[in-house]
């Protein structure tokens, strides 16, 4: 079943210029899709269109076959589509972790016991059980963002969209958040739409989509996309360092495959060295 489907969607902001042009795009249930793009490529607009925060000018958007354009679906759609935004400070409503996670669950009118259970479930899913009664402002960036994920999880959405959720975090916080997201996708079967400009993160996805000026310009497995690094550069996206190392090694006559996995590369180099020394 298609979790998200865009058919010929147009969107432009009031100040002119198309943010999204005739976009056709879909995500299968349980899939992990990364959307890559430079600033202003329209990738964040995509997230906001999915749950009706923005209204498309033309075309059709469906979430589990429910059209977003119909107002009566909006509540049901928002229950199914959770969005984690960029700045953790601007998406926490309450000062205490537990109260903030409860916010979404309270909004959908659950009973007290049910909310309590969902808070425990959500905190466990992001590995932050011991912070239940902590103050949000005292947490690190990565921890705050995990709480934001927990706040979304408490509504038990089937789809989770991460709109540049790691952009403000340090490498450690980024890894924390990405580990949680990967686990949610693999173990809980949540459909993930990851919007990012960090290429390494896209490597965890089943499929990567590259956007430029409101259009999808490349699509495929992350590896196949990274192999076309010259094309990527024309969209102002650059490979992580390890990608360049692969290319340089090949240019220098060492036959390694395209990879962003450090261990795999190390293994291949080691084998080359072994072969040459024999």
């Amino acid at each position: 079943m298609k979790a998200i489907e865009f058919r010929a969607v147009d969107f432009s902001y009031d100040n002119g210029g198309f943010a999204i042009k005739k976009l056709n795009f879909s995500v299968e249930e349980g899939e992990f899709v990364a959307v890559l793009g430079h600033n202003g490529s329209g990738k964040s607009t995509l997230a906001r269109l999915c749950n009706g925060l923005l209204e498309a000018d033309g075309g059709e958007i469906e979430i589990f076959s429910m059209p977003v354009s119909e107002k009566k679906n909006l509540y049901e759609i928002r229950k199914n589509v959770g969005i984690v935004f960029q700045n953790p400070d601007n998406q926490t409503v309450a000062s205490i972790v537990e109260d903030d996670i409860a916010f979404g669950a309270e909004n959908i009118g659950l009973s007290r016991e049910e909310i309590g259970e969902r808070i425990s479930f959500a905190l466990k899913a992001v590995g932050m059980e011991e912070f239940r009664h902590s103050t949000c402002t005292r947490l690190s960036g990565g921890q705050k963002q995990r709480i934001a994920i927990a706040g979304v999880l408490a509504i038990r959405p089937k789809i989770m969209i991460l709109d540049e959720s790691t952009a403000m975090l340090d490498p450690r916080g980024r890894k924390e958040v990405m580990d949680v997201v990967t686990r949610l996708n693999k173990e809980e079967g949540i459909t993930v739409l990851l919007i990012t400009h960090f290429m390494e993160e896209a490597l965890r996805a089943d499929r990567a989509v590259v956007m430029n000026r409101g259009e999808i310009v490349m699509q495929g497995t992350p590896q196949s996309i990274f192999a076309r690094h010259e094309e990527l550069e024309t969209y102002n996206l650059s490979l992580p360092r390890i990608g360049y190392i692969c290319n340089r090694l090949r240019d220098g006559g060492i036959p390694v495959h395209d990879t962003l996995d450090e261990e795999q590369l190390a293994e291949e180099i080691a084998q080359c060295v072994l072969r040459q020394s024999i």
Binding site: K79, G82, N87, D89, N90, F103, N107
Partner: peptide
């Protein structure tokens, strides 16, 4: 800017005012 983002985040988390809303802490 923060207010706008918070508003979006609240909408995304199904906030619809006091209608149909429950309270976790009694």
């Amino acid at each position: 800017r923060r207010a706008e983002e918070l508003g979006d985040a609240m909408d995304a988390r199904c906030y619809m005012g006091s209608k149909n809303r429950t309270k976790y802490k009694k």
